[in-house]
């Protein structure tokens, strides 16, 4: 983690290469900060695949993983190749988000090399000292780019930047908004009728229960012409995709994802996700006749 700035070895360019052709300004008061979570998911998926084989050996596997987590080595010694099909999906999602913001006349800068991982994993594992050090580094980098408002693209980064960083970083003064909030509050307009259909929404836990981003995606989807269906457990009582424990127990994570997937599929064969972790986990258990689609692609009218 200390060497790469990520929980496992990932080349730095993998985080910002998607934005190179867009030639966005590199500094400004409004900064698009992805926190690298979307870009890491193709790597996470690959790591989880490797961990699944360790899990076969039961307790010895757990002991190994616990010691890995606890000594904060994470899985940094594994060789990680990203899943290539996922890399291109992630690039399309991130480009769509920039496109949506532009269509709503929101100008964002992008910090390229300074679009660092937010340290979510360190925080989730309770590695407070390491997390604090990392958070201070990220904050300074964003400030050096002139940031006043940062626009986030996933629930984990939104939560950590808005509700956790202020408790760890002295003098923290960044305003944080998810792009979904910016689009919904700015009255984003979509070409009516060009896209549409019946979709079922899967609320990510952090948006729904911790950051109160509940109505925004619904408003955006219905403005874009979609009929939004609710699963049995939705909004504040939404059900987890299993993602947060996929590193420790891919098997249980899959069982949780499967339960959620079945519940969503009952309502529609198009499942909308708002988080790259939810996307990966639901996609991994989805059957072929069901589409799991990121909301940014749906709103942009990009065919899933």
């Amino acid at each position: 983690m200390r060497r790469y700035g990520f929980p496992f070895p990932v080349p730095r360019e993998a985080v910002y290469s998607w934005a190179k052709p867009l030639k966005l300004p590199e500094r400004g008061p409004v900064i698009l900060y992805t926190g690298a979570l979307y870009q890491l998911t193709p790597y996470i998926a690959s790591v989880v695949e490797q961990l699944s084989t360790i899990e076969g050996s039961r307790v010895s596997g757990i002991a190994l993983k616990l010691s890995g987590i606890l000594s904060s080595l994470g899985v940094s010694r594994l060789v990680v190749r990203p899943k290539s099909d996922m890399v291109s999906v992630v690039e399309r999602i991130l480009k769509s988000i920039v496109g949506l913001l532009e269509r709503s006349r929101v100008k964002v800068a992008y910090p390229y090399e300074d679009d660092m991982y937010s340290g979510v994993l360190l925080y989730d594992l309770g590695l407070d000292e390491l997390f604090k050090g990392h958070a201070v580094k990220v904050y300074k980098a964003l400030k050096s780019r002139g940031a006043e408002l940062i626009v986030t693209v996933d629930p984990h980064t939104t939560h950590i930047m808005r509700s956790v960083y202020p408790r760890y970083v002295d003098g923290y003064d960044l305003k944080v908004k998810s792009y979904l909030e910016i689009l919904a509050e700015g009255g984003a307009e979509f070409k009516q009728g060009s896209i549409g259909g019946r979709v079922v929404i899967h609320d990510p836990c952090l948006y729904a229960r911790f950051e109160n981003v509940v109505e925004h995606p619904r408003k955006l989807l219905s403005t874009a012409g979609f009929e939004v269906l609710e699963p049995r457990r939705s909004r504040k009582m939404t059900y987890c995709c299993g993602g947060p424990i996929e590193g420790l127990t891919p098997r249980m994570a899959k069982m949780i994802a499967k339960t959620r997937f079945e519940e969503l599929r009952e309502k529609s064969k198009t499942i909308v996700t708002l988080c790259p972790i939810c996307y990966t986990n639901l996609k991994a258990v989805a059957e072929d006749d069901v589409d799991v689609v990121d909301i940014a692609l749906l709103l942009s009218g990009v065919k899933p």
């Binding site: 836990c205 229960r209 059900y239 947060p244 127990t249």
Partner: peptide
């Protein structure tokens, strides 16, 4: 207890319930 807590998803359904 902390070692077992690593299985917690941090999803917050317990908080809300």
């Amino acid at each position: 207890a902390g070692k077992l807590a690593y299985l917690c998803l941090g999803c917050g359904r317990c908080d809300t319930s």
